[in-house]
Design a protein around this nucleic acid. Structure first.
Lengths: 343, 343
DNA sequence: TGTCGTTGCTAATTCGCATTATCACTGGCT
DNA sequence: AGCCAGTGATAATGCGAATTAGCAACGACA
């Protein structure tokens, strides 16, 4: 039975009980047998006996104090970490991060104390606690350039999950190669006979949006149409596509693809016979559907894992602070991309 | 790469930059204006300016060493926090915790560094870092009594999410009243005319299991049958129920209810016409279904929220350490409980 | 007899921060 | 001049463990 630890047992207590010095206790505990520390078996056993009898455990905090790292990995998300509204978008990233942190023996600190102003968090505010952690991972669709610039300027060790444009220096990240994956799906559509294709979605704002549009343009040509979705009802978007005699729509956001499919079903438009629909990634908003969309998936778990690894490498000096890494997306065959009618 | 020795900023650094002593920095930070420490506004501002510019944050470990508050809330889960296999069971709890932590201005520390041995984590291991946090929330279906006993013995401030049996003292918790909710659904079934009812599931092991079985027995009588599921194929369970001419099955685990329904569909057994199925809570394992089960839901988000609140109250001395709280479950009408045939 | 090497241990220091005790200086008063 | 009170800061200390430097005792050897 461990005693009612009113005051925590320290090495000094053990030392007193075993009639040795605190140093000796520490040496015995760490099993040091260098030339500088020779403890005869007799003394060792005496110390170990007291430790066993008292149930002494070294204070991990004091222990970490001397090493200069807290083994705390910060995780900053621009929205709530556990949202009910974003379709568990963060979940796979976090699963990867947790998995890696566990292997490295790190704890995860979620910066929930950061105040949410107008629906979004901010890294820098009057009482930013970033530096509690040894380093930090950044999650979020869009991260303001000025915050990134400040992180770089302050030389705070961080890695972004998701590609970010440089901001006063290269931003370290582990991202997904949306451009390449989008290009590939477009090429696939062309191989099937599609000629009239369109990009559906913002295509701007976040890097991930811009990357997809860029990949689309690279494969489909610079004049291929871009249909924005902002605040437009899916039916209207569908009309635009049909009016332009588009045969394959490349939809940036899976939730928009679902909405488009729903609108099509309502209108009696057959997907994919009348219109192929390609989903360029995973849902960042909740979207229920039974449709197995063609397109690609974002390697979210792997991104989380590799970002964590990269941060660890940066912290231990094994990697440059500005390292950037793009992972390939996982292509999904799906059922919504077929050859266009009459080909 | 010239890696700029990413060493942590200390009060000494701030002191040097502001041309004061480390003591002064500490005094400014802790806003001490005792008679013993009078810092004129001018000096204060100079120090604060440097702190703001550098984003300095006190080392949480060093802070804790001197028995201060960290505004860090520990979260210990007995399985992975972000599992792919447990059907996001933790997610709503964490959403509630995050929500509350955000309001309190606390950060969340997930103890992912705890080593996983044979699929489960352990609180107490050679390098336990519990004390980094001010207090801790405990999540998990089953928590070993010895670990709870030790937490209590060491007087570590914690609150369990989910009811736990006393372990060397009352275990502080915010749980769900499974017993009452189960009783209510059983009574509802009896009111509909059911007489042959059975409890399906372990009914033992975790407190939550035992509570449900207890609630079931309280309403259905002590001799009402209990059909275990451990390692038995759903079809076999279904057979057992049908052989015993059961008209309503109260299934502890929603995933088991789904499996049972699938087995029934395959067999041509109509649910709920031939057999009513009541789900006693939410899925702890992933289970895809379109069925809207009758039964109840666990107020997971509210549990997380209230557990956080309770821990905060304990830490600030406004609540007794052993406080226990049970929340009512949310009854779900659903479509799988109807009057039995021929009544 | 002095020097060296070995053995067995400990005093002192360090980490980052909070706290306590102390110090230097100024101005007013006797 | 001498004393005290008030002001503005700092040196010193401690938390618990790890690490470094070093000391005392004892033989062996020249």
């Amino acid at each position: 039975m461990p005693d009612k630890a009113a005051t925590r047992l320290t090495q000094r207590d053990i030392a007193r009980l075993a009639k040795v010095s605190q140093t000796t206790v520490s040496l015995v505990l760490n099993n040091r047998s260098d030339a500088t520390a020779r403890i005869p078996a007799e003394t060792r056993d005496r110390v170990l006996k007291v430790i066993r009898e008292t149930g002494y455990q070294a204070d991990p905090l004091a222990r970490r104090m001397l090493k200069q790292r807290n083994q705390i990995l910060g995780v900053f998300t621009y929205e709530s970490v556990f949202p009910s509204s974003s379709g568990d978008f963060y979940h796979p990233f976090l699963a990867g991060i947790e998995d890696c942190a566990e292997r490295l023996g790190w704890d995860l600190l979620l910066f929930t104390s950061a105040p949410v102003t107008s629906g979004r968090r901010q890294i820098f505010h009057e009482n930013n606690r970033l530096r509690i952690a040894d380093g930090c991972l950044l999650l979020g669709r869009h991260i303001p350039a000025d915050e990134l610039a400040r992180l770089i300027a302050e030389e705070y060790p961080f890695v972004s999950v998701g590609r970010r444009d440089d901001a006063g220096g290269p931003v370290p990240y582990v991202g997904a190669d949306y451009a390449a994956a989008t290009s590939t799906t477009v090429e696939k559509a062309f191989a099937l006979g599609h000629r009239r294709v369109a990009f559906v979605g913002p295509g701007t704002g976040a890097e991930s949006s811009a990357d997809r549009l860029r990949g689309f343009r690279r494969a489909a040509g610079n004049r291929a149409p871009h249909v924005p979705t902002a605040d437009r009802p899916p039916a209207e978007v569908l009309d635009t596509l049909l009016d332009a005699r588009i045969t394959a729509a490349f939809v940036e956001e899976r939730a928009d693809a679902v909405a488009l499919a729903d609108a099509a079903a309502e209108r009696g438009v057959d997907i994919p016979v009348d219109l192929s629909v390609v989903a360029l990634g995973d849902a960042t908003r909740p979207a229920a559907t039974g449709i197995d969309f063609s397109g690609f998936h974002v390697p979210r778990q792997e991104m989380g894992r590799q970002a964590t690894e990269l941060l660890e490498a940066v912290l231990s000096g094994r990697a440059a602070a500005g390292t950037q890494r793009l992972l390939p997306c996982e292509l999904a065959e799906g059922t919504t991309l077929i050859a266009p009618k009459g080909s």
